[in-house]
């Protein structure tokens, strides 16, 4: 982890609600892993005070380029979506523990990635990372509106299923929630494990679903951050394993869904 300033290389609008920003990754920094995030200092109007956390949405090792996928929600994220190539990014990272990947070529069961909202970026990175390691991957994504559905280019081999809550729907997209897709999948196939990121209500329901079926589930939690480096204790996530609170920026942002105290989260 360190602070670095790099120019934006490309800004790509992948749907009405997602913009992917690519930028060079400093050669001296460790390669980022799926689930890790960057803390960005953003100049916006109106101005914001705190830095903003964004998950990595991809990493291209051959060109040493990284990306984040931004969903505009307020001043900082909107300013990021308007940033032009050549303009500078103020980055602290990479931060946090990644999704818990253990290489296992003997296990034919897929790792199932489930999410929506801000989860699209980190899950895209997870899918890319796992496919590069020849792991079986299933990607289940949900969207509120058809116009939100991003044009993602997944490498060969990913089994992708999309859900959307409103019609008219593109070919093959399920009308409904991503949870329907997950439940349907679990009825038919046994996942090795589930990795998820998205709206808090979805995370909680998916976590309960996995717990009930004995499926290991890792959740990428979105928490308000102050320092993003473990100093301020602001990003506390309540846990039920006796440790009280853990810091999303340091012990997280990926947590074992079984230890998260969902009632204590105030969603």
């Amino acid at each position: 982890m360190r602070r670095f300033f790099v120019p934006l290389l490309t800004s790509r609008v992948v749907s009405e609600s997602y913009t992917e920003l690519r930028f060079p990754w400093p050669g001296d920094l460790r390669r980022p892993l799926p689930g890790q995030f960057l803390s960005l200092g953003v100049n916006s109007s109106p101005p914001v005070f705190l830095r903003r956390p964004f998950s990595l949405s991809g990493f291209d090792g051959s060109r040493n380029e990284a990306a984040v996928m931004v969903l505009p929600r307020g001043p900082a994220s909107e300013a990021l979506c308007r940033l032009r190539p050549g303009e500078m990014l103020d980055i602290i990272g990479p931060r946090g523990f990644p999704f818990p990947y253990h290489h296992n070529t003997h296990d034919p069961r897929p790792i199932v990635l489930v999410g929506g909202g801000i989860g699209v970026g980190p899950l895209q990175f997870a899918a890319q990372y796992l496919l590069e390691r020849h792991e079986p991957v299933v990607l289940l994504l949900g969207f509120r509106e058809p116009a939100m559905i991003p044009a993602l280019e997944f490498p060969q081999g990913a089994r992708v299923r999309l859900a959307c809550e409103k019609a008219p729907l593109p070919e093959g997209v399920h009308l409904g929630k991503v949870l329907d897709l997950a439940e349907d999948f679990f009825d038919r196939e046994e996942p090795r494990e589930v990795w998820t990121c998205g709206p808090p209500g979805m995370l909680h329901r998916l976590a309960s679903l996995c717990l009930a079926r004995g499926i290991a589930c890792s959740v990428l939690m979105e928490e308000m951050m102050g320092c993003a480096v473990g100093a301020c204790m602001g990003c506390a996530v309540p846990v039920n394993d006796g440790r009280g609170y853990l810091r999303a920026c340091t012990e997280g942002p990926v947590f074992d869904a079984a230890i998260v105290d969902w009632e204590g989260l105030w969603t």
């Binding site: 308000m224 609170y245 105030w266």
Partner: peptide, 8 residues
């Protein structure tokens, strides 16, 4: 342990 979340 500190106060309940969210804290910020």
């Amino acid at each position: 342990a500190g106060n309940p979340a969210p804290r910020l």
